[in-house]
């Protein structure tokens, strides 16, 4: 991992702490908050490709599993974020123009995937009310927050335009 990757991980950790301390406690209507860690991992994977996305998703997910307060099984977020990181990176690699659509799709897929991962071990009691009310609002909230968050993350991960062009040049010059 290069210095930039460690910096990204540190930033992601800061985002997660900010999530549980600030975002989740702001009294938004409908009591939902976007999952910023998920959006961060997706943005990172869009820029760095599937391999780095998978590793970052797993690492960030494990950190999220350790971040108090937790009431779920350890490894649950790691599983979901690792998978989403791979998918986002893979699709973005195959179709570089589809970046925004991939980000939106991943943001929408996040909450159902979390619930499904919890349901794997029977930890989450899935009841019709939650599926009917909470899940759609959570998905919608994530999708609304996705464009600005993913845009910001891709800007940070890519660095300044000068670095990007230099990196491209370095990649091209390799045999």
């Amino acid at each position: 991992m290069a210095g930039r990757d460690w910096m990204s991980l540190g930033l992601l950790l800061a985002v997660m702490v900010a999530q549980v301390m600030i975002v989740n406690r702001v009294p938004l209507p409908w009591q939902v908050a976007p999952d910023l860690a998920l959006l961060g991992v997706v943005g990172y994977a869009l820029v760095r490709g599937p391999e780095a996305g998978t590793v970052m998703g797993f690492t960030a997910g494990l950190a999220s599993d350790l971040l108090p307060p937790v009431a779920h099984v350890m490894g649950q977020h790691a599983l979901v974020l690792c998978l989403l990181g791979f998918v986002a990176g893979r699709v973005a690699e195959a179709r570089p123009q589809a970046g925004p659509m991939v980000a939106l799709a991943c943001a929408a897929a996040g909450p159902p995937a979390m619930v499904a991962a919890g349901g794997l071990l029977g930890e989450v009691q899935i009841i019709p009310e939650t599926l009917g009310d909470v899940l759609p609002t959570a998905v919608l909230c994530n999708m609304v927050a996705a464009p600005p968050m993913v845009w910001a993350v891709t800007r940070i991960v890519r660095g300044s335009p000068r670095t990007v062009s230099w990196a491209r040049y370095a990649v091209r010059s390799q045999p």
Binding site: V20, V32, P69, V70, A71, P111, M114, G118, V124
Partner: peptide, 10 residues
């Protein structure tokens, strides 16, 4: 001092 998201699930 902190609150976990996903209301209705956790």
């Amino acid at each position: 001092i902190a609150r976990r998201g996903a209301p209705g699930f956790e």
